[in-house]
Design a protein around this nucleic acid. Structure first.
Length: 264
DNA sequence: GCTGCATGATGAA
DNA sequence: TCATCCTGCAGCA
């Protein structure tokens, strides 16, 4: 489930198990064979996440840049890993830990200048608030420059990094913003609330390991699988006001909202 | 066993 | 706006 929270969890996990170690690298699938050979035996120094991008830094090797896209997945085994599937693009191993990567959109070695270019086209990451330019002001400035609907703007990773289709629908619902309002016409207090909500939701996603936006259920209560307000809930009434949930397409993806709770 | 879909992004048209 | 990249899995036969 690769929105920003998943990527941050991968970064933290991979740093914890591999940083400071000599890492064996290979590409069972073969499509990253040259890169894996280059990394094989190097010491991993750090793993950084920004939005949906991962950067692995090594002693005496280029940075490994990974973007999971829609399908990409990591699998981590503590010991006795199964043989890699033929689709495994990259295998990393150190001590008793083995990590397999399959289906990424991007898996490449990059120079510092390329890394700078990637960072330059990414907006602020709510999970890095208070570091560098990851501020609500940067987010507000990015929105002020766009006339596209707010629902399209926050999927644009150069506006805000790490928001995906679920967080887009849920954060707009929680801030009562109708997705079709032009980004530059959203009132300043709503923009601030949208940033704060993004920080809260993503941080909760990191700690829980999944996207949940409803209030936590009391201990001992049966939990429903769907912990969302509007995403893919067009067959249900709004949890807050009971009106039907609306759905449509925006920026090429499905979007869901409540016409009553989210004012135009 | 097969089909269609998915929490993403890009490049062509 | 659409096709494409490319993998896993839910849902269905």
């Amino acid at each position: 489930m690769p929105e920003g929270h998943t990527i941050r969890r991968y970064a933290d996990r991979h740093r914890a198990v591999l940083a400071g170690r000599q890492v064996a690298a290979s590409s069972p699938q073969g499509r990253f064979a040259a890169g894996a050979r280059r990394l094989d035996g190097r010491e991993l120094l750090d793993v950084e996440a920004h939005g949906k991008h991962l950067f692995y830094r090594w002693r005496r090797a280029e940075t490994l840049h990974i973007h999971l896209g829609l399908y990409g997945k990591f699998r981590l085994f503590r010991s006795d890993p199964p043989p890699p599937t033929p689709a495994t693009r990259l295998a990393l191993a150190a001590d008793e830990v083995t990590i397999y990567l399959a289906g990424p959109t991007v898996c490449e070695l990059i120079m510092p200048s390329q890394e700078d270019a990637i960072m330059a086209r990414l907006g602020p990451d709510p999970l890095k608030v208070d570091t560098d330019g990851n501020s609500p002001e940067a987010f507000a400035a990015n929105l002020a420059r766009r006339r596209i609907p707010i629902g399209a703007a926050i999927l644009d990773q150069s506006v805000i990094a790490g928001i995906g289709n679920i967080y887009r629908a849920e954060s707009l619902f929680l801030t009562s913003i109708h997705p079709e309002i032009p980004a530059n016409e959203v009132p300043a207090d709503k923009v601030a609330a949208l940033w704060d909500t993004s920080v809260e939701l993503l941080e909760r996603g990191v700690s829980e390991g999944r996207i949940a936006t409803l209030p936590r259920v009391p201990l001992g209560t049966t939990e429903e699988t769907d912990r969302l307000y509007v995403y893919k809930r067009e067959r249900f009434p709004c949890r807050v006001c009971g009106s039907p949930i609306s759905t449509g397409q925006m920026a090429g993806r499905g979007i869901w909202w409540c016409n009553t709770c989210q004012s135009a």
